[in-house]
Amino acid sequence: MGITLAEEIALLSLDDESGVARQRQAAGWAVAGAILLELVMAERVSVSGTYLELRDATPTGEPLLDGRIPLIEAWLRGRDKRKVTDWLTKDHPKAFGAALESLGERGLVVAHVHKVLGVFPHRRYPEADGAVERALRERLRDVVLQDTDPDERTAGLIALIHSAKLHRLAFPDRRHDSVAPRMEEIAAGQWAAESVRAAIRDVEAAMVAVTAVTVLTATS
């Protein structure tokens, strides 16, 4: 496996030159959802309806994913299952940063830290190697704009981008209404086993629920 779905979403969100994350809040939810989805695909957790269960605590060999397994295990605290929305809410503040750190360890971005007013750390992650992002964007264009059949991972990535409304990050030169219908079609398509499609649907529903609460809280 190349970089994870979560790292791909984080990479799309970063401005190549400044290293500033765009749409950070929404991208954070998508990254948390992407980590969870990959754990489902790796058969380490299961998502059914509104609930999350840990199925296997064996490491996957991917540090970003493996770092979440003991956290989920501790979070469950002996319970068989808990709500997906509760886990996403818990992981959201840290998941994006973890994905950025992982990109740095791969040498794809470089962390720059300076202190605002001499006190508050401000981090930027300018791109160090653009080849991976270029290949990623080409893959997305082939599937969304050229109607190429997606593989399971690409379809999952597109579904997450669509549900988090990150269309502009993936296709900055395209109008929302020119890409959203195809992305919706992919998200709902017959591109994977029923168990994975069901997990995508349930993770998407959970992301919509938690982001709706965030928006209401911010505007109240």
Rank of each mutant, 00 (worst) to 15 (best):
T85D: 11
A98S: 14
P59D: 04
P93A: 12
L64M: 06
A57Q: 11
L65H: 09
S13V: 06
P59M: 02
L88W: 07
S46D: 10
Q25F: 11
E101D: 12
I69D: 09
D91E: 13
A30F: 08
V84F: 07
V31S: 07
L14A: 01
E105M: 04
L11H: 02
Q23W: 05
V40T: 08
L64F: 14
W75V: 04
I72F: 03
E101A: 01
V40Y: 15
I72L: 12
V20K: 05
A21K: 07
G49T: 04
R82I: 12
P59H: 03
L52M: 13
A74D: 08
T60Y: 04
W75M: 11
T85C: 10
L52P: 14
Q25R: 11
V84W: 08
A27W: 07
A42K: 15
R55K: 04
L36M: 15
W75G: 08
A34V: 14
S18V: 10
E7V: 04
G49P: 03
L103G: 00
E17I: 15
W29N: 05
A30H: 11
A98L: 15
T50N: 09
P59C: 04
R106Q: 04
E73M: 10
E38H: 09
G61D: 13
E53M: 01
M41T: 14
A10H: 12
S102E: 07
L64S: 06
P59R: 06
E8D: 12
E38F: 09
I9L: 09
L36H: 13
L14S: 01
A26P: 03
A32S: 13
T58V: 15
K94P: 00
A34Y: 12
L71T: 00
E73S: 14
L54E: 00
A32W: 05
R82F: 01
V84E: 07
L76P: 09
E17M: 10
A57V: 09
R24T: 13
Q25S: 12
G97W: 01
A26V: 00
A10D: 06
E105P: 03
S102L: 01
L100S: 02
T50D: 13
L11A: 03
P59I: 01
E8S: 12
R79M: 13
L76Q: 14
D56I: 05
T50C: 08
W29Q: 00
R106M: 00
S48F: 07
I9N: 05
A26F: 03
P59Q: 01
P63M: 05
T60I: 08
A27G: 07
G33Q: 05
L5N: 02
G19K: 06
L54R: 09
S48I: 11
W87I: 10
D80Q: 15
F96S: 10
D15Y: 09
P63F: 01
P93N: 14
V31K: 00
A57D: 13
L54T: 04
D66G: 09
K90M: 13
L103N: 03
A6V: 05
L65V: 06
A95S: 14
D56Q: 06
K81Q: 07
L39Y: 00
K94S: 06
S18D: 10
L100Y: 01
G33M: 02
E105L: 04
G49N: 02
R77S: 12
